[in-house]
Nucleic acid binder design. Sequence first.
DNA 1: ATTCTTTATAAGGTCACCCTTATCTTTTAA
DNA 2: TTAAAAGATAAGGGTGACCTTATAAAGAAT
Lengths: 221, 221
Amino acid sequence: MRTQSTSNETIEMYLKTIAELGDGGAPVVIARLAERLGISPVSANEMVKRLGEQGLVAHVRYKGVTLTKNGRYIAHNVIRRQRLWERFLVDHLKMEWSGVYEMACRLEHATSNVLAEALSAYLGHPTTCPHGSPIPKSDGSLPLVSTRPLTALRVGEKGCIHSIQPTTTDVYAYLNRYQILPDRNFTVSEIAPMEGPITLDLPSGKVALGRSMAELVWVNV
Amino acid sequence: MRTQSTSNETIEMYLKTIAELGDGGAPVVIARLAERLGISPVSANEMVKRLGEQGLVAHVRYKGVTLTKNGRYIAHNVIRRQRLWERFLVDHLKMEWSGVYEMACRLEHATSNVLAEALSAYLGHPTTCPHGSPIPKSDGSLPLVSTRPLTALRVGEKGCIHSIQPTTTDVYAYLNRYQILPDRNFTVSEIAPMEGPITLDLPSGKVALGRSMAELVWVNV
DNA sequence: ATTCTTTATAAGGTCACCCTTATCTTTTAA
DNA sequence: TTAAAAGATAAGGGTGACCTTATAAAGAAT
């Protein structure tokens, strides 16, 4: 007599990923979603259909998936919980900055609302995660930040790193190794042609970043 | 190309439950296991067979299931992680004593070894959970404690509550309401016949406990 | 306008983990 | 010792979430 519908964990991962990829509400094409979740596009398509039936997302053929109001509320709560855990892991448990995203992702699924609020209070209601991204409020609101990816800058422009977008542990580790971290100032010293690397001048030295990695680095000018 | 064997979470729940029910290594009959896990005995039987194939448990027909060395190692690590989280939830997040068992159970499944060790260090390597039970060491060892259930005492005996065995939130809440908590001293003031309630004389007053609840209360005399 | 690429869907599977009902065995207790 | 109770298993199902291999439809590029 067990009515087991789609598991929370699966739903949460889909909604969170849609929110992360379609930052601010842009439609996310199913193939991108599948890629990020590490599953086949066909499976993602099936799942999106189910999420649509539950009123959590809207899908327009060949355009992409967007979150409904309800879906976004859930997604932001998921992101909130994850980023709170990230703060705890980095600030209190002194865990590696590059590994906490994945660790916190797992903890997130096991976190009730009441736990999230207790954790937030314990941490002193932080507003950003260790990667610089804002932590949504418990009402699901997420402040809009006006930053842009590093790829939008031109040679000679100076800026300050605002945040690193969600990525994998190895990418975080790479960025960490070269001190590409929130709140670091830099100057764009070179942009190679043919989609080549972007070279940054940081206090710690010069670093060349490929375009796709540079997409993940959001900056203020 | 996804080789998905029996999920960690499922295995962990089975092993942990066997360890909890067969405290110290007594065989656990499959029906008890099923009851505790909230599944049918047939399903539990199937699963036990799978765990047996993986060398984690041994099952003797009509006698019960026991953990192998390897199975016990995993079970104790699971219990360790859960009890560490319980400490964190109670001591730091100030969450309700009666609810933390279930909360910590969920967090446990999302906890890697490295996280568990960091958490243990953060907490100052505690040796007992908030319900009084010992926390296994990271090598899987669990100190034997020589306590007995309240049901083993006779009228007039004095004792001190050592621990409350794992149970459901509502039972914890009941015990908490009547201050039946670790380290409280008491006298057995009455034992009703016909498997009736056992009445305790506590600093906070007299409390009558049914036999099955009294089984959960472990005491030192 | 036609080809190429990207995106979506249809059809048919797999696997872990759960279910019920029916049929044994073993243990226990009258 | 024999019947009842408790425990185990066989047989047959179901569901969520994934998979692969087509095929169809839309958008982009020549």
